[in-house]
């Protein structure tokens, strides 16, 4: 039975990877958390003076860190802390629900650390926050509450502590 479930899961993952419209259809019909109001924090200084942090839900982590849990159909609401001076070869992606072959070749496709470093060198931004926070997205069921109540606010507090003055987020 377990094997059959695993097989079914593998089949769905394969379908999602090769037929992007299926995922779009899923997104249209899936019940997402409806929210009230929109939080708002204006940028307090010009972009060329602001410290920017990167946050991603593309399942990026360092090779030395535990991978995200791909067996739980509800996803994995935990996060990994990656130093912003990480080398590209130290980073891997664990995510079965999207085709990350392009990002495996060039991390900037999902996490534009090198592009951001160019902007910093060119004086277009003030600086880069010391850490990247990485999630895997695809979170469902009870893990949504864990994300909203625990891990997301924790990352927000960490970003504040890191001195981040604006955050750029990328999905899978």
């Amino acid at each position: 039975m377990r094997r059959l479930k695993e097989l079914g899961n593998a089949l769905m993952v394969g379908l999602y990877r090769h037929l992007p419209w299926l995922a779009e259809r899923w997104a249209r019909h899936h019940r997402f958390v409806e929210t009230e109001g929109i939080p708002w924090a204006p940028l307090k200084k010009p972009l060329r003076e602001a410290v920017i942090a990167l946050v991603t839900t593309a399942g990026v982590h360092m090779e030395t860190q535990p991978p995200f849990d791909m067996d739980d159909p509800g996803g994995d609401p935990s996060f990994r802390v990656i130093p912003s001076d990480v080398k590209e070869e130290e980073v891997v992606i664990t995510h079965k629900y999207y085709d990350h072959s392009a990002a495996d070749k060039d991390l900037n496709v999902v996490l534009p650390l090198y592009r951001l470093k160019e902007f910093e060198a060119e004086g277009m931004i003030g600086g880069i926050a010391p850490f990247v926070y990485s999630f895997m997205g695809h979170i469902d069921g009870p893990h949504v509450a864990t994300l909203v109540e625990k891990t997301a606010p924790e990352v927000a507090r960490r970003l504040k502590r890191d001195g981040a003055e604006a955050v750029f987020l990328t999905p899978a």
Partner: peptide, 11 residues
């Protein structure tokens, strides 16, 4: 959650 703590965000 990040915006709510006072940091502007773009995704």
């Amino acid at each position: 959650a990040i915006e709510a703590i006072g940091i502007p965000t773009i995704g």
